[in-house]
């Protein structure tokens, strides 16, 4: 059964989401600040909920798909909070928190966690999974930022007043800011994914005494790395920067979802959760 920290986290995330939405529409500063504070508290209690799960499974709390989803949500919220504080932009909270909530609810209430096998223990394994999921969280954030970029670009191109009727549209981060944040997020994701992959290779060699290069998870990870590296490159080229690069970033995230939801569950023998 999910512990009381899970319920506290749910309440805090829901309250934070409500305030972020209110902030987007009404623009009151204190609403935004309170939303940030509640998100930070939610992150704290989510961490304790992950610890509870960890005690239950006697391993890292993400040795199954649902545990990893919960960690995904936690890292997404943490990455967003870092980005919000760095760029002083709160208006993306209303888009990020629903994703965090869905990941948290599915991750927490779908499964109680399975006791870990002896293979799924140790620091190297923990770091491999954590860094990989951090990368996914950063890519998810870049996806949301790129989507908002494309939405705003669409309304700017339409030129009419229709898009600007909603007060929230005037409070979105500017296009340039969204581009910067998206690139920053992808950079964090790339570094994490490279580090996580290297640690995964080392861990596999240690426990299996060989490395299976042709594992679908390894191949799809290389594709993801190449696509995001390509995005970083083209996002500074004259003919690509802006909407085209953002579209590429958003579409690349579909490959990440494929890797996480399909490859992890059905295709990879070694990375299979279920």
């Amino acid at each position: 059964m999910p512990g009381h920290w899970s319920y506290i986290t749910l309440v805090l995330y829901l309250a934070s989401l409500g305030l972020y939405v209110r902030f987007l529409y009404a623009g009151r500063r204190w609403t935004g600040r309170l939303a940030t504070i509640l998100l930070a508290l939610g992150l704290g209690s989510h961490y304790l909920a992950l610890l509870e799960r960890s005690h239950w499974v006697h391993s890292v709390p993400y040795n199954d798909l649902y545990g990893s989803l919960s960690l995904f949500g936690w890292l997404l919220a943490a990455t967003y909070l870092g980005l919000e504080l760095y760029y002083r932009q709160r208006s993306m909270g209303a888009f990020v928190l629903p994703c965090v909530l869905v990941l948290f609810i599915v991750g927490t209430w779908s499964s109680h966690g399975l006791p870990a096998t002896h293979l799924e223990q140790g620091t190297m394994f923990a770091l491999h999974v954590t860094l990989s999921i951090l990368a996914y969280a950063a890519f998810a954030l870049a996806f949301l930022l790129s989507t908002v970029y494309l939405l705003q670009d669409h309304y700017l191109r339409r030129r009419g007043a229709a898009g600007w009727r909603c007060p929230a549209m005037w409070r979105f981060p500017p296009l340039e800011g969204l581009e910067k944040m998206s690139r920053g997020s992808v950079r964090v994701g790339l570094v994490s994914l490279v580090a996580g992959t290297v640690l995964g290779i080392l861990w596999e060699i240690r426990v299996q005494h060989h490395f299976l290069f042709m594992d679908p998870k390894v191949l799809i990870t290389l594709v993801i790395l190449a696509l995001y590296a390509g995005y970083l490159w083209v996002s500074r080229r004259t003919g690509w920067r802006g909407a085209r690069a953002s579209l590429m970033c958003a579409l690349t995230f579909l490959v990440v979802i494929f890797s996480y939801a399909v490859v992890n569950v059905y295709l990879s023998q070694f990375h299979r959760y279920l």
Binding site: Q152, P174, L175
Partner: peptide
């Protein structure tokens, strides 16, 4: 104001 939407 629209310029601020694009450039901040």
């Amino acid at each position: 104001k629209l310029a601020e939407r694009v450039f901040g």
